[in-house]
Amino acid sequence: EMGIEHVILPDNGLVFPGDLLIGADSHTCTYGALGAFSTGVGSTDLACAMASGVTWFKVPEAVKVILKGTPAPLITGKDIILHLIGMIGVDGALYKSLEFEGEGVSSLSMASRLTICNMAIECGAKNGIFPVDDITLEYLKERNPERFNSKDYEIFEADRDAEYATTVTIDLSEVPFTVALPHLPSNTRDAREVDLKIDQVLIGSCTNGRYEDIALAAELFKGRHVKEGLRCIVIPGSQKVYRRALDEGLLAIFDDAGCVISTPTCGPCLGGHMGVLAKGERCVSTTNRNFVGRMGHVESEVILSGIPVAVASAVLGRVATPDQMPEVNG
């Protein structure tokens, strides 16, 4: 199946609680959303693990992240993880296990949890991990009923007397639409306080290319149009996501809105193709990194955001929030 591994593996039921996964990509930490231990390694380490079937880790310390409350409408996992990275910095959890807990967890969809764990590495974490709850189990049952029914998995929980290097508390009701300005994911701002014109919007990636992300973008684009002179590129994260979006008419909504639609790919996220930035250009992107030269020319700029801010920015031609978009007639 064509697409991005961090979208394909969870969506096809290939990851379960208690699994240990490594991948030659730092965003392998995505799968912690399903109660697995997953982390990125170097290509040589991965090759040795594939050849031998074993690998070695230094056991990390842990950072507890307590989530309280419920997010405001259209606040997503991307806003939450950017908010956290802004609080603790790009090295705030260096080689530590980022463990999420609290009553706020139940208010987060699997898509939001996958996005949050995907970016655990952006604050230096070895891995990110969520507790397994009914939302997790329903997700797994739907995608791999055979393994789910066989009980071929193990749910781990933190010991009651577990020690943590530090504890961070986030009230989800207070998390705003959040963006990360150049050139670090920790350079965060309330999106409403940013007024910058842009040249491009990118919707997709292993961070925000899941069906739920694409469906939300289509919902917000319906009846609206991309600002004249601006490029908006929509890249579903897998062939399955692409086909479902096609069958449900979501791609038609993007086409009507003036977006460019790509087949599944990482594309411009790492400066590959399909939206590489030129000198002086600025992009609002639902990807995970905004380092110097990340998406093209060293004098271009990337602003990280969630789906709602990306759509609003595409419509208004500047960093914007969905409440700032004009109402749709009819």
Rank of each mutant, 00 (worst) to 15 (best):
Val54Trp: 09
Arg224Phe: 02
Ser43Ala: 15
Val194Ile: 10
Ala111Phe: 07
Asp161Ser: 14
Ala314Asn: 05
Pro185Phe: 07
Gly249Thr: 04
Gln200His: 06
Arg244Thr: 14
Ala314Ser: 11
Leu34Tyr: 11
Met119His: 01
His297Leu: 06
Arg113Val: 03
Pro71Asn: 10
Gly69Lys: 10
Gly23Asn: 09
Lys58Glu: 14
Gly280Gln: 05
Ala245Thr: 02
Leu84Thr: 04
Leu46Arg: 07
Thr287Asn: 05
Cys48Met: 14
Val175Asn: 03
Asp195Ile: 03
Thr70Met: 12
Ala158Lys: 14
Leu108Thr: 02
Gly77Trp: 05
Ser205Thr: 15
Val90Pro: 08
Leu304Ser: 06
Lys141Gly: 12
Asn187Val: 06
Ile170Pro: 06
Val7Pro: 12
Glu99Met: 11
Ala320Pro: 01
Pro322Thr: 03
Ala33Thr: 04
Ala36Pro: 09
Ala278Ser: 15
Ile75Phe: 08
Leu74Ile: 05
Ala191Glu: 00
His297Met: 09
Phe130Cys: 03
Lys279Glu: 12
Val194His: 06
Gly223Gln: 10
Ser26Trp: 04
Thr178Arg: 02
Val319Leu: 09
Glu122Trp: 01
Asp161Pro: 04
Leu74Asn: 15
Val319Trp: 07
Gln239Tyr: 13
Val194Phe: 06
Ile75Asp: 06
Gly330Leu: 14
Ile66Val: 15
Ser305Arg: 09
Leu84Ser: 05
Asp79Cys: 11
Asn208Asp: 13
Asp19Ile: 00
Ala252Ser: 12
Arg289Val: 13
Asn118Pro: 05
Lys78Trp: 00
Val241Cys: 12
Gly53Phe: 03
Asn149Thr: 00
Glu228Gln: 14
Cys206Trp: 08
Gly128Phe: 01
Gly209Met: 04
Val309Met: 06
Lys222Pro: 00
Ser112Trp: 10
Pro326Ala: 12
Pro60Gly: 11
Ser52Tyr: 09
Ser305Cys: 13
Tyr139Pro: 02
Glu101Leu: 13
Ile85Gly: 10
Met274Glu: 03
Gly69Pro: 08
Ile66His: 06
Arg224Ile: 01
Ile75Arg: 10
Glu142Ala: 15
Ser52Arg: 14
Ser285Asn: 02
Asn12Ala: 07
Ile198Pro: 04
Phe148Tyr: 02
Ile4Cys: 10
Leu84Gly: 05
Thr167Met: 03
Ala314Val: 04
Glu103His: 05
Arg160Trp: 06
Glu327Arg: 14
Asn149Phe: 01
His183Met: 10
Pro236Glu: 12
Leu140Thr: 03
Ile81Arg: 00
